[in-house]
Structures are given as structure tokens and as C-alpha cells.
């Protein structure tokens, strides 16, 4: 068990936005969190990262994982797209949580950054500027950064938003590869139910409360999936 959420509830200014979230994940699972806009996906992400305290229930991490050791890939902001930074600088900043009391990165951090750039196939881009990259390349840089921050759990917030179909497919494959080859647990927030059903082992469907949690196979048979897709079957 790497993550266990028990009867979680989140509220803003006393108004409950998400409740009844109750699930657990084992190491190596691939969870997709789906739901419409405003269903509480982003709130749950903030909760898992420790950026928002739950107003009820508990979050427990297993296998020695700390919230600050989650490899997080946030949604990109406009500000970042034209940020003057080299790919190497961005990836290296993923080692931020291993700095501890140190002030600067050491050789081991740099080594880890290089390794993760290689893993994502962006080592040739290392000295390129982040702002000159395509959307798909930028996402791979951010995934490499997330991998620098974690050995166990990736948390991806809509990682394929704005990507073209080819880049989207590449991104999904890279994530699945990391999940299968390195045994890293993946939690991905997604709008894309078809991709979720194809890649994930588990699905969490939110709509201000937990509507469904279970294996992907069970989800495909459930009424929630059909309703979400407007009557179509996965």
C-alpha cells in the first residue's frame, strides 16, 4: 500500500467541494482520476500534495513516501511557456526536494537530472532553451523534472492538454513505460476517458464526491462510464 485516503472531505470557506473520497493504491498501480470540470479533481491533487489540508478524513502514505517526494507535473501556465531557462536547468530543479539543508545541487543531483533527460529522450535538448521547444517536448522536460523529484509516485495533472495527437500518444507511452519498467506508481488527472481506460489499472471518478473507484475492467462495465460518455460504451 503506497497511498490510502479515508473518507476525505475538502471545503473552501466552509463549503464542501469534495467528499467521501475513500480509496487505496498499491505500488505500481496506475490510477486515472476522471470527472467533469469542477468535480474536485484539482482539489484532490492539492490535498495529496499537502498544499491543502483536508477538512475531514485522512491521507496516509506507505513505503516511506513523503508528500514532498511526489513527482508532480502541474498544468502549465502561460508564464512558463516563454521562460528563459535551459532544459537542464528546468530538469535539475526537480532535485529541489533532495537539497535538504544544502544550498546548491551536487554531482549526484546533476547525474540524476542527466539520467532522467536520457530516459525521456531529451538529452540532445539539454542546452536548448525551454521556450523554444514544442508543447510535447516541454511536457517531456516537465516529466523528467517530476522524475527527479520522486522514486515512487508520479502525480500528473492533465499532462496532455494542448498537445497534438502524436505528442499525446508519445506522452502516454512514456508515462506507461515509467510505470511498467520502473514500477513507479502513477496518478493522472485526465479528461480523456478513452486513454484512461486504455492505460490505467484503476479509475477514480469524481463528481463533488467519489462516484466510482475500482479496476479499469470494472469501470468499463459500470453505469458511470456510460453516463460520462453520453451513453456510449468504452
Amino acid at each position: 500500500m503506497i497511498l490510502e485516503c479515508k473518507n476525505l472531505r475538502f471545503a473552501y470557506d466552509g463549503e464542501t467541494v469534495l467528499e467521501g473520497v475513500d480509496f487505496s493504491l498499491d505500488a505500481g498501480n496506475y490510477l486515472c482520476i476522471v470527472g467533469e470540470n469542477g468535480s474536485g479533481k484539482s482539489t484532490l491533487v492539492k490535498g495529496l500534495l499537502g498544499l491543502k489540508a483536508p477538512d475531514g478524513g485522512s491521507i496516509r502514505f506507505g513505503e516511506g513516501l513523503k508528500p514532498s517526494e511526489i513527482g508532480y507535473l502541474p498544468q502549465q501556465t502561460q508564464l512558463q511557456r516563454d521562460f528563459p531557462a535551459s532544459v537542464r536547468e528546468v530538469v535539475l530543479s526537480g532535485c529541489l526536494n533532495s537539497l535538504g539543508r544544502r544550498l546548491h545541487y551536487n554531482a549526484a543531483d546533476r547525474e540524476r537530472a542527466s539520467m532522467n533527460m536520457e530516459r525521456m529522450g531529451i538529452e540532445e535538448l539539454a542546452d536548448k532553451s525551454y521556450q523554444e521547444l514544442s508543447g510535447g517536448q516541454q511536457q517531456r522536460v516537465l516529466l523528467a523534472r517530476a522524475l527527479c523529484a520522486t522514486k515512487k509516485l508520479l502525480l500528473l495533472d492533465e499532462p496532455v492538454t494542448g498537445l497534438d495527437p502524436i505528442a499525446t500518444g508519445e506522452m502516454y507511452n512514456l508515462i506507461k513505460l515509467v510505470n511498467l519498467c520502473d514500477g513507479i506508481t502513477v496518478i493522472m488527472v485526465s479528461h480523456d476517458l478513452h486513454a484512461a481506460a486504455r492505460y490505467a489499472t484503476h479509475i477514480l471518478h469524481l463528481g463533488q464526491k467519489q462516484l466510482f473507484f475500482g479496476s479499469t475492467a470494472a469501470y468499463k462495465e459500470s453505469s458511470f462510464a456510460r453516463r460520462f460518455l453520453g451513453g456510449h460504451r468504452l
Binding site: 498544499l51 508528500p67 508532480y72 512558463q80 529541489l96
Partner: peptide, 22 residues
């Protein structure tokens, strides 16, 4: 100079920096 790596991280992506415990 002392806090350069952290200042970079906070400038580039505050959410990520926060999530990693900065």
C-alpha cells in the same frame, strides 16, 4: 547567491516548488 537554486525554482514554477516542500 546562497538561495539561487530555490529562487530559480520559485520563479519558474511556484506550484511545483511548493509541492516539493519548498
Amino acid at each position: 547567491v546562497l538561495f539561487y537554486p530555490r529562487l530559480f525554482a520559485v520563479t519558474f514554477d511556484e506550484t511545483f516548488a511548493r509541492a516539493t516542500g519548498t
